[in-house]
């Protein structure tokens, strides 16, 4: 821990509190981007899953819980309590334009790839049709990257070890899913359930 990080975390906490109080006191969330707050809540949720897997320090745990609680509290203020003051027209940025590159980047720079949806399929033995299509395009994106790396290796003589290794591993995760997808969803009942 260093002064920069401690003061940074506290500034982050102050910002969250300011936003929350602003909405709470003015009883209005006009001018606030609800989508951004939802994305913050999603980011905190996905990043802080390690709350349940590894204990680092009291500070670390407390701050993560505070961030999570405040993010969800803010989202609930915007979308529930003061919904009438939320003008969604102005909150028009396309989340997918942000999520796609971020999702792409998260595939490139990571340490392990265990998408919860794939886990859910193996766990529950089935997935709703829309989820399979979502995973199909996610997997297709991975497969296309293999082509991209082959192209870049032969044409540009460029090779990025981390990206390729993690990308191949991720794509291998999708092989059994692709098989189920084509045999069951495309040809079959439109809903995937493991044999």
């Amino acid at each position: 821990m260093n002064i920069f990080r401690l003061s940074g975390d506290l500034c982050h906490l102050v910002a969250i509190i300011i936003l929350f109080l602003k909405i709470w006191k003015s009883k209005s969330c006009a001018g606030i981007s609800g989508k951004s707050q939802v994305l913050f809540a999603v980011v905190f949720t996905t990043r802080y899953l390690d709350l349940f897997t590894s204990f680092i320090s009291i500070y670390n745990t407390v701050m993560k819980v505070v961030y999570l609680a405040s993010a969800y509290a803010t989202v609930s203020l915007i979308y529930l309590r003061f919904r009438s003051t939320f003008d969604s027209e102005s909150d028009s940025f396309r989340v997918e334009f942000l999520l796609v590159p971020v999702a792409g980047l998260s595939f490139l720079e990571n340490y392990a790839f265990t998408p919860l949806e794939l886990f859910m399929i193996t766990k529950t033995g089935e997935a709703a049709s829309i989820t399979t299509h979502y995973l199909f395009f996610l997997g297709l994106y991975r497969a296309l990257y293999l082509g991209n790396w082959l192209w870049r290796y032969h044409v540009e003589e460029f090779f990025d070890q981390i990206a390729v290794v993690s990308g191949v591993v991720q794509t291998i995760f999708y092989c059994d899913f692709f098989y189920l997808y084509f045999t069951r969803v495309i040809r079959g009942s439109g809903k995937m359930s493991l044999p």
Partner: peptide
Amino acid sequence: EYNVYNHDEL
């Protein structure tokens, strides 16, 4: 090797 204690930034 990924060490969770190095990656403790919030």
